[in-house]
Amino acid sequence: MQHIVDNLPYLLDGLFVTLYVTALAWLVMMATAFALGFARYYGNRPARWSSGLVVGLFRGTSTFVMLFWAFYVLPQFGVTLTPIVTGVLVLGITEGCYLAEGVRGSLASVTRGQAEAARVLGLSPWQTMARVVLPQALPTMIAPIGNFTIALLKFTSLLSFISVQDLTSRMQSLRYQVGDSIVLFGVLLVVYYLLSTALGWLFRYLERRASVRGTGRPPEAGHGAAAAPPVTEPTGGEVALR
């Protein structure tokens, strides 16, 4: 534990890099997910086809392989990116490809009837999207966005293998100097756990707030302990609205 206290500034620098890389990759992920999600749901045939190809390519292969490919092969074609940019792009685009399916699903969850009703009222396509479809679709996207944000955070630890000085990388360096793997890696695990938990809370809070406003799904009606027959509301009507 003393080693951690002694090297706190060094490790905090690493933590900062981890958070900073996560934030940048998050922006890339969101841009990718929305672009591909919209293309897959609203696009014409070529748009759907090509976005499907991108999604298949990035989801079919392994993130870690993609990372090394970008790191070692791209420079051989004269594309030289810093390790951080390489990592941010690969992680952001890959997770964005997964999240695109969530965006597409959320858009699909808003019924055609809603969009048609808006058009009949005379709203432009742009207004229909901004005022009718998105306000209903966004709340249902929050949960998947949260999951993939946590996934991104965890994946940034891989960037230590392409020489990004993140928290994992610094902890690893420290371990080479002082040993004591149990404490160092134990602390590292706890830090990641706390960060993931905090992100989980944040997104659940956002989701609750969004659904309270009445646009999202109602809070999940889980059946509690499976051991007892779950009690369903008796008559649907006023009791369920309570």
């Binding site: 027959p229 009690v231 008796p234 008559t235 649907g236 009507g237 006023e238 009791v239």
Partner: peptide, 16 residues
């Protein structure tokens, strides 16, 4: 609906 008739059945069936 909501007058309690279904609940009577569910009580008799042992569900409530």
């Amino acid at each position: 609906s909501g007058s309690g008739k279904t609940t009577v059945l569910r009580v008799l069936a042992g569900l409530e």
